[in-house]
């Protein structure tokens, strides 16, 4: 059985990611090589306190979101869903908003957990509805997801409006790395662990995507697997939304790119998925920093444009092919 990883593609993507990371470290307003910068910040300080954390945050977030997309697509048995736009993201934001309301001083980990809990429920509800949509029309599931995400977002907006927390909600709803500094992003390393769990469960996830009958026939506890998948997606959502905010379409575009060539065998696809996701988000962040230097365009906005355009291309291409 050829279940080898697609080594050349992985190597190529890893190199690209390394180049992007190097670029990310040097691009920014502060001068990295100034001995005694006019602002009094040394280059090394800037590197360690700001640039490196930002770069790592983008890599971790991108990899996690791409993995979450892959997992979500096996759960929904639909290759066009992206958790961040299908209600998981806005549910996480709603949960974080609620805990901020009830316990303003709660530590960030607790907020992430609350976000994950609500994201779990919100995604469960979405999958419940998605199951009843006719499988012959795969476009209805992402369509439902986007509008469902909007409805959950409206609930969050109403609460935020009432509680005067609109600015906070905006921060969680629009992904941005400009606020990432040392001490404020380390929670994201949890997502690396979640990625490892997904890799460990990869074969079972693939079987899940083949449908319940196949999964049960192969001796899988179908319900338990669904739960595990949901927990992975929800935790990734909670952690990323609380630290950097919602970044749309990564979970859709990356698996779509990979699925075409590598296929849907999760174990084969996952490493490349993580690398490409990291590259996409880091690249978009760098683009956002350069577009209107020295001002920044948030990465969520950049990917809103890039991701929506790519998604549109996928939809129209698939529709043309019939």
């Amino acid at each position: 059985m050829r279940r080898l990883l697609p080594a050349p593609a992985i190597l190529g993507t890893a190199l690209l990611l390394a180049a992007l990371a190097a670029a990310s470290l040097v691009i920014g307003v502060g001068d990295l090589f100034a001995r005694d910068g006019t602002s009094g910040v040394s280059g090394l300080m800037l590197l360690l306190a700001s640039r490196l954390p930002r770069t790592l945050a983008a890599i971790l977030t991108g990899a996690a979101l791409a993995i979450a997309g892959t997992v979500m697509q096996t759960l929904a048995k639909n290759r066009f869903v992206d958790p961040m736009t299908a209600g998981t993201g806005s549910s996480a934001a709603l949960g974080i908003l609620l805990v901020t309301l009830l316990a303003p001083g709660a530590p960030i980990a607790l907020k992430a957990l609350a976000g994950s809990a609500v994201a779990f429920l919100g995604t469960l509800l979405f999958l419940r509805f998605a199951r009843d949509l006719p499988p012959t029309e795969p476009f209805l599931v992402p369509l439902f997801g986007i509008v469902y995400g909007g409805v959950v977002g409206a609930i969050a907006a109403a609460i935020a409006w009432e509680a005067d927390l609109v600015q906070f909600l905006d921060v969680w709803m629009n992904g941005e790395f400009s606020g990432v500094i040392r001490g404020r992003y380390e929670l994201l390393f949890v997502t690396a662990l979640l990625g490892a769990v997904a890799f460990w469960a990869a074969d079972r996830l693939t079987i899940l995507s083949l449908g319940r009958a196949t999964a049960v026939g192969l001796g899988l506890d179908h319900a338990a697997m669904l739960r595990l998948g949901l927990v992975i997606v929800a935790l990734i959502a909670g952690v990323t939304v609380v630290t950097v905010g919602i970044i749309p379409f990564v979970g859709l575009v990356v698996p779509a790119l990979i699925g075409r060539r590598v296929g849907d065998d999760v174990r084969r696809a996952l490493p490349l998925t993580a690398l490409l996701g990291a590259g996409l988000v880091l690249g978009s962040d760098i683009l956002g920093r350069l577009l209107r230097y020295p001002y920044e365009v948030p990465v969520g906005t950049v990917l809103g444009v890039v991701g929506a355009a790519a998604f549109l291309a996928i939809v129209l291409r698939r529709a043309r092919l019939g």
């Binding site: 795969p138 209805l140 369509l143 809103g304 444009v305 929506a308 939809v315 129209l316 529709a319």
Partner: peptide, 18 residues
Amino acid sequence: DIPTLLLAGVVLGVLFRS
């Protein structure tokens, strides 16, 4: 082809907003 029209429309909306 309503599903395609709908999804393309909604995504187009997201694109314009972004």
